[in-house]
Amino acid sequence: MLEILLENEFGRIELYQLATGVQALRFVHQKGQGSVSLYGGQVLSWQPNGQQPVFWLSDTSHYSVGKAIRGGVPLCWPWFGGEVKLPNGELSKVSNHGFARQSQWKIADLSMSDTTVEITLSLFGQAFSSYWPAACELSQTLVFGESFQQTLTMKNLSDQTVEYTGALHSYFCVGNSQETEIPALNDALYDDKLSGYNKQKSTLENCMGPIDRIYQSSDKMVIVDHKWQREIEVQSHGCQQWVLWNPGKGGQNMVDLHAEGENEFVCLEAANTDWQEIASQSSVSISQTIKLHVKR
């Protein structure tokens, strides 16, 4: 099934069947191309004209209801990792990263100008999970052009204050993770989820794993990709941390990560890993802006 949703002199946006029960949008525009899955409300790809892809997507990713998609920009919400805070304040072990990335989102708006493609998706309801039963409305605005902007707005429709953790779990495509560095992280304290040691500081030689760190920083980051001679600038807003992840050779045990895929990406995630409050009938937003700088 293929349906053209919007077409003008600048490009075209199509709705297509990615897999059984999984629909997606793709666009071709004079500034580039990209795709977004309605399942998970997840950016899958973005490639400005004349550039290498910005986001990485596994060749063996699952595209089925109940499974997370490996790559692109998954949404971790309303909890990051495998813990959720119950109404009584206690923490409970749960499956990783919340329900937003395994929910069916709806198209709220589409527009296309000479410089950008803008896609707005929404997720509305309550009791998505027994661990987080509050009524909520999520709105995600994606703006693709020479740069990329992603804004996730979370509205608490319940009568009580709720808490969330979350992340924009970006898989950035690089020439080789062993030839990639992020200099600004060298000056930030981090918690090492692999060793269990917190408040560490060390020089990051490259982005090959196994790496799983939470950096206490909201500074602008620049991913320096030496092989492809480009820099990916990432600026977050409303986020207090950066999460850095790459499985290294452990990726060989992940069925939804194709062979040697760990060499092709680094996850740098704008995140709030500490619990954040959303007052009743109030909204908060987190966002990221991504720009490319290519060395000529």
Rank of each mutant, 00 (worst) to 15 (best):
K227A: 13
Q102D: 06
N253C: 04
I278H: 13
G145Q: 02
P78S: 09
M154A: 09
I119L: 14
N96Y: 08
S283L: 11
R12D: 00
A68C: 03
T60G: 04
C207G: 07
K227W: 02
K93F: 07
G89P: 03
C76H: 09
K93A: 12
R101L: 03
N8H: 12
E7V: 06
P78C: 12
N198F: 10
V94P: 00
I286A: 02
D192W: 06
Y131A: 11
K220H: 03
F148R: 08
K193C: 08
H293Y: 03
T165P: 12
Q160M: 04
W275N: 09
L138K: 02
S280I: 06
E3Q: 15
N156Q: 09
V65A: 14
D219N: 13
S282T: 12
C136E: 00
C267R: 04
T180W: 03
E205R: 15
G250K: 11
L110F: 10
W242G: 07
Q30L: 11
I223P: 05
G98D: 07
P133V: 07
L57M: 11
Q23D: 13
A100G: 04
G34K: 02
N176F: 00
K227L: 14
T151P: 01
S103T: 07
S58N: 10
M112N: 06
G66R: 14
L138E: 00
Q102N: 15
D225W: 06
N186Y: 12
V243L: 12
G250M: 08
S61T: 15
V224A: 09
